[in-house]
């Protein structure tokens, strides 16, 4: 579970995130949607503990910067940054050691098999394409079997098989009760997996919808998205 309360992130006078408050429950998949510059990535980075912020963020009841929170948090950055001199398998080993994981080999193998990385197991990070680097990033985040995972534009650069596999994994994690937050500016890419959507604009959450709400009212989410992001009107 993630609890974000009054999250504000300022760069000098510019507010990248302005008083965000939201909760994503166990087993729920939330989407932070919005155009470029809406503040999605900043919010994700604040939650993952990479940025300083005002407000409070809790991961399963722990302060997000505490070691307990880090132990159960997975983060897939927008721009993959593998170690150029480590092999793919060594990335897995490094994460396992850094997080003190036990019996991780089978899981690492399974993740790599699903993302078709097994034949690249002994390739160095610098020898991989951007897409492959993105796959390593995802495998590293998921190896720790996180209770909360943050994905920043995860589908960009992935091939169709990896997209299919990642979407399957979203479903599996959901069944296990994992909390997922996905940041994207393309709602259609996540339309079949979200439970809750937050539409962001200018650092603020302009609208929040649950899947149940949308299904009951028959509201067109894309229409709402464009209405907000094109500045026609905000939340009624």
């Amino acid at each position: 579970m993630i609890n974000v309360s009054h999250l504000t992130k300022k760069y000098n006078r510019f507010k990248a995130n302005d008083n965000l408050t939201f909760t994503v429950s166990d087993g729920e998949t939330a989407v932070l949607a919005g155009p470029n510059g809406a503040g999605k990535s900043t919010a994700i980075k604040c939650i993952s503990g990479l940025l300083r912020f005002d407000g409070e963020i809790e991961i399963c009841g722990y302060k997000n910067k505490s070691a307990q929170a880090k132990r159960i948090l997975g983060y897939v950055p927008e721009i993959p940054a593998p170690y150029e001199l480590l092999t793919v398998w060594e990335h897995m080993e490094f994460i396992a050691r850094a997080y003190r994981l036990e019996n991780w080999e089978n899981r690492a193998g399974e993740l790599m098999r699903r993302f078709e990385l097994m034949d690249k197991r002994d390739k160095l990070g610098k020898e991989l394409s951007k897409g492959m680097q993105q796959k390593i990033s995802i495998c590293c985040a998921l190896l720790i079997e996180p209770k909360v995972v943050l994905f920043d534009e995860p589908l960009v650069g992935l091939d169709p098989h990896a997209i299919k596999e990642l979407k399957l994994m979203f479903g599996e994690m959901k069944e296990k009760g994992t909390t997922i937050i996905i940041s994207t500016h393309m709602l259609e890419s996540v339309e079949d997996i979200w439970d809750r959507v937050f539409i962001m604009m200018n650092g603020r959450i302009e609208a929040e919808r649950s899947r149940k709400q949308v299904e009951e009212t028959g509201e067109n989410l894309n229409e709402l998205f464009f209405r907000i992001t094109e500045g026609r009107t905000g939340e009624e």
Binding site: L85, L86, T87, W89, E90, F94, R97, A98, L124
Partner: peptide
């Protein structure tokens, strides 16, 4: 770069960073 022997093989927690650096250095 010649990959050579694979595996970090030592260190847990923060120490894993040090042994990873040794592995990168050896490459």
């Amino acid at each position: 770069i010649k990959i050579g022997k694979t595996g970090i093989n030592r260190g847990f927690g923060a120490r894993a960073i040090f042994y990873k650096h040794l592995k990168e250095g050896s490459r």
